[in-house]
Design a protein around this nucleic acid. Sequence first.
DNA 1: TAGGTTTCTTACCATAGGTCAATTTTTTCC
DNA 2: GGAAAAAATTGACCTATGGTAAGAAACCTA
Lengths: 191, 191
Amino acid sequence: MKELISKIKKRIHVQAEAEAFLYSISKEKKVTKGEILIRQGQVVKKTFFVTAGCLRSYCIDKNGKEHTLQFAIKDWWISDYIAIHNNELATLTVECLTPSTIIEFNARELDKIHTYFPEFESYQRHNLERHVVSLHKRILNQLQLSAPERYDLFLQQYPDIEQYTRNYHIASYLGITQESLSRIRVEKSKK
Amino acid sequence: MKELISKIKKRIHVQAEAEAFLYSISKEKKVTKGEILIRQGQVVKKTFFVTAGCLRSYCIDKNGKEHTLQFAIKDWWISDYIAIHNNELATLTVECLTPSTIIEFNARELDKIHTYFPEFESYQRHNLERHVVSLHKRILNQLQLSAPERYDLFLQQYPDIEQYTRNYHIASYLGITQESLSRIRVEKSKK
DNA sequence: TAGGTTTCTTACCATAGGTCAATTTTTTCC
DNA sequence: GGAAAAAATTGACCTATGGTAAGAAACCTA
C-alpha cells in the first residue's frame, strides 16, 4: 500500500485524509497461483492493484478458447472494467499466474475518491490517457504486424513477464495458438 | 459548437466563462472530401470534434498499407492521441471521408480547460473511461471473432457508417483486405 | 453524358497460421 | 525424489485469408 501511495504522490499532493480513505477501503492480500479473483459471468465489485507477482485478465469465447486482454505486474491495476463501467456481469476472468500480493479495492468506493478528493480526478485522467494511448498502439500493432513481429514487440515491451507466464498465456495475448508461438520461438532461436 | 456545449451540459454545469473559453480556442470549419487534417510524420497540434460528416484516422505500415484506427462521425472526437500524449510526431493520418463540419481545437489549449475549470476533469475522465471500455471490447473482438463475425458486429455498431465509407476503409478497420471483405459481403448476401 | 478515375468483384493460386494427435519436456506436489 | 499432471514441441494436414491481376461497376467532373 505504501508503494501505491508514494506512486500517487509523485504526481499529486495526497492529503492525510485521502491516504486514510484509501486505507479504509482497501485490503492487502496474498493470493496463490491459479486463484481466480473475478470469474466470467459473476458480479464484479473489486479492482486490484498488484504489488508483487503477476495476474492476467482473459475472456473465454464460444469455443472455450481463452483470449488474454491484459497482464498485470507490479504497479499495475487489473479488473474487468467493461463490467464495472457498464454495470454488467463479468465478461472477463482475472486469474493469478504466480503467488502475488495485491491490494483489493471496492471499485465503487474507490470511485468516490474523485468526489471526496478532486485532485485525484486529474491523476486518474492522466492514467486513463496513458492507457488509451497504449490500447491504440496495441490495436495498430495487431492490425499491421505479423505474429513473429508481435511476439518480438511483446518481449521488448514486457521483458520480465516471461518468467511469470506460460507460453499459451502469451499466445492468447498475441492472438495466435500456442503451437504457432512454439514454432515462432523455434525460428527465432535458429537465428 | 452549440451541439458540443449542450452535449457537455448534459453531464456537468458549464459556466459562462468556460463556454467563452471554448469559443476562444476553437474554430468551426467546413472540410472537403479527401482533405488531410493530420499527416503522418508531422507535428500534431490540433484535435477535432465532428459535427457533421465522417473522418477516419489510420496509419500506413512499412508496406504502404493503411490500417484504420478509428472512424469519427457526428459528436465524436478525432486526432492522433498517441502523438499528442507522448509529444511525438504523428504516427496517424486523419482524413476527411465526406464533406464534413468540424470544430478545430488546439490540443494544448484545450487541455488547459481542466486547470481553469476543474469540473471538466470529471467530464473528461468519464469520456476516457468509456473509451477505454470500447477499446477493450475491440481488442477482445479482434482476438476471438472471425472476419465475417467482425464485419457483422461492425455493421451493428456503426449502422450508418457505410454511407460515408469505402469498403477498403472498413476492411482496414477490421484487419482484412478489401478483397476478403468483398467475398464476405457476397457470402452474406447469399443468405 | 462521355471519358477517366476510383472502387469493387472475381478467379486462381499462395501462405500464415490453425487443428489434431502423438511425444517430449517441465512443473507440481506428495 | 519421483509419479502425475500440465505444458511445450513436433509433424501432417487443413483452412481462412492474402496476393495478384483483370474486368466490371460506380462515380466524378468537365
